[in-house]
Design a protein around this nucleic acid. Sequence first.
DNA 1: TCCTGACTATTTTACCAAAAAAGTCGGACG
DNA 2: CGTCCGACTTTTTTGGTAAAATAGTCAGGA
Lengths: 206, 206
Amino acid sequence: MNHQHSHDKRADILEAAHRRFARFGLAKVTMDEIAADLGISKAALYYYFPAKEDVFRNVVAAEQQDFAKRIEAIIEGDSEAPGKLREYFKQHLALLGTLLDLGRAGDSIKPIMRDLFREFSATETGFLTAILSEGKRRSEFAVDSSEQTAQLIQHVLQGLRIRFFKTMTPGELRSADIKAYRDEVLRFLDILLIGISHSRNGVKKI
Amino acid sequence: MNHQHSHDKRADILEAAHRRFARFGLAKVTMDEIAADLGISKAALYYYFPAKEDVFRNVVAAEQQDFAKRIEAIIEGDSEAPGKLREYFKQHLALLGTLLDLGRAGDSIKPIMRDLFREFSATETGFLTAILSEGKRRSEFAVDSSEQTAQLIQHVLQGLRIRFFKTMTPGELRSADIKAYRDEVLRFLDILLIGISHSRNGVKKI
DNA sequence: TCCTGACTATTTTACCAAAAAAGTCGGACG
DNA sequence: CGTCCGACTTTTTTGGTAAAATAGTCAGGA
């Protein structure tokens, strides 16, 4: 919208805040520190943002919007629906990696992150529904309800994510653990792709 | 097994404790109350159980063992593997319903429940692996690794469960919500059964 | 062996005061 | 006017402590 040469001050603040949040987490970053990083006073921050939480939300929302942009591009593309679903999963995992840093330092942050994810989940369901619907239209997927299936996929991803971080957060999470998580998500994707593929047979629903 | 404590006094205690725990949760039940229910002194409880937590663990473990018995019977049975997997899911949901009551009153209980579930998860993976392996042997299922797939299934179930209670526990959970959860698990089962069915085609793994 | 009453040890709760951080405001400066 | 600061007020977190509640122990009795 307004990126002329003059640095958008809000963007600067968001960037500085992002660095701090990624390193220490919401609770362990003070507004004074962010202000000091930028060489301005805390009061200046409050000129641009009404609250600390608002700064944090904007940092996360920015990442989510980048993700949304990438997914929209994928949906617009002309590959087949299964390929799009694969791409979606790939981007989803990338987003998670980015948000991983912001989400540390638990407890005080949890309700906020929950909010952020809940709001964004509607968007994600929309994307998944779009991909599934297209696949259905093109006879690449066979699903009863694209909406319902999209929601199931999202809930499984969310569930695996929550489960993962619930069992891992004690102690820093090693990249090996993250890889295990990635692998499991991709294994789910494989089963899912067959499970919703159009050319099914041999299984009777009871 | 038990000629230490002759009669079923332990069972009596477990039963009384179960009633209390199911109604109020671990944190809101005192040993004095359980003892009073049985008309004995608190010290008597400590004759049979070394700690309050141990009583709780035994209550939960009893339910899990009942579940294990039922699953073993199912595995021994002679139905087809997909049917066994369906039965497994059905029993799994039933177990969850039973444990639901015990698991209320959060925070103090969480690490204990986590322990209980974690220990039991090895058993559950074993059951799932057995069902999947049999299906594979009988050419009813096509899975690369029964073990890995069993683990994935279990993690998805665990994830959906955690996700569900994480988003629902504020406020009492209504039976309508539980039904939504059940439906989602069963929808996952449908996709899973197709996804691992032997007669797959038309989808290339990339 | 099974249990009790009376004990001790530990955990939870309530409270408060001090410190830290969030958030506000009148006014300066270009 | 839009941008920012210093000084201010308000809210939240922290730390410490005492009382209450509850877990857990023990010597001994039936």
